[in-house]
Computed example of a mutant assay.
Amino acid sequence: MKEEKLHIHTIQSYLVMETEKFYQKIMADFGISHFYSFHTDSEKKVPFLEDSCSNILFEYSGNNMNSFVIGNSGKLQTLTLKRNCEYFGIRFQPGANPFFENQEVKDLVGQRIDLCNFDILTNLSEKMSEQNTFTNRMCTFMEEYRNWLKTTQSGQKHLFFQMVDLIVKKDGLLKISELIDYTGYSSRYINLLFETFLGCSAKQFCKNVKMHTIINELNRTDIDSFPNFSSKFDFYDQSHFVHSFKEFTGVSPKEYVNQVRKSSYKTKIVDF
């Protein structure tokens, strides 16, 4: 049986809620988490959750296209979507940033930078502006992207990605002491790697993975009991769960579930 590739659930649920259809193609390879696309009818500000991933977002409006890099937010933020625009995005896996060799992922945290500021991506922007379907945009991006993929990586980065895979496999339910036991490295060195390659601590990354695992469960499953549900994710009690969830998403678990149901969330996602 073929082993399933690890995939961190970072779908940005609020984007799904604000559109009629949300198209996605799970990649989980080559440093890419997934491709996604959606359309907006009106201008709106949408919550954008911390997910430890960088994004490139192409914004199509008539014959015009804007494009920008969105670094890992570092906290709950908002993303302004324009009226009558079609969006095509690439979400990279945590720590992946092959385009910007001279700029660390940690330097992109909290940043939104126009792609036109990067001369090396001029050719990519021109080609992407000519594409008008999800498949063509995805294929065009990959053609250019392959030119930047590296075949080798440092020993430190290899260790970092091994720890990322382990945390994702455990749904974020991993204590730093366990990570020390698994790797044989000190907490100081582990955090140094995460700060260097991701811009956050290992503990914060574990929290991000856990919260997105929870959100993914709430998106696709009817929850009968929040106390039983929260206990699966190692929260001390119900109040601890509610506080952590609200801090991460801006709403309580109950409010979030109501939004999922009201928006008919499950019917909106189209997988390629």
Rank of each mutant, 00 (worst) to 15 (best):
M1F: 12
K5V: 00
L6C: 05
T10A: 08
M17A: 06
F22M: 04
I26P: 02
D29R: 15
I32M: 12
H34V: 05
Y36G: 01
H39D: 12
D41P: 01
S42N: 14
S42C: 01
E50T: 04
D51P: 08
C53T: 07
N55H: 13
I56E: 01
I56Y: 01
I56V: 12
N64V: 03
N64R: 09
V69I: 15
I70Y: 04
N72L: 01
K75V: 08
L76Y: 06
L76K: 11
L76W: 02
Q77A: 07
T80E: 15
L81I: 13
R83V: 12
R83D: 05
N84H: 14
C85P: 00
G89H: 02
R91M: 14
R91A: 05
F92Q: 10
Q93K: 07
A96K: 05
P98I: 02
F100C: 06
F100A: 02
N102Q: 13
Q103R: 13
Q103E: 07
E104T: 03
K106E: 04
K106A: 13
K106I: 03
L108Q: 11
V109Q: 02
Q111N: 10
D114A: 13
C116R: 07
N117S: 11
N117Y: 11
N117M: 11
D119E: 15
I120C: 07
T122K: 15
N132E: 06
M138I: 04
C139R: 10
T140A: 12
E144A: 00
T151C: 05
T152P: 00
Q153D: 09
F160P: 01
F161T: 13
D165T: 12
L174G: 00
L174K: 01
I176S: 13
S177E: 11
L179R: 09
I180T: 06
D181N: 03
N191M: 05
F194Y: 15
F197A: 09
F205K: 08
K207Q: 14
V209P: 06
K210P: 01
I214Q: 03
E217D: 13
T221N: 10
I223M: 05
I223G: 03
S225V: 11
P227M: 10
N228S: 15
N228D: 15
F229D: 10
S230Y: 15
F233M: 05
F241N: 08
S244P: 02
K246Q: 14
E247H: 11
T249D: 04
K254L: 07
K254G: 06
N258C: 09
N258F: 09
K268Y: 10
D271I: 08
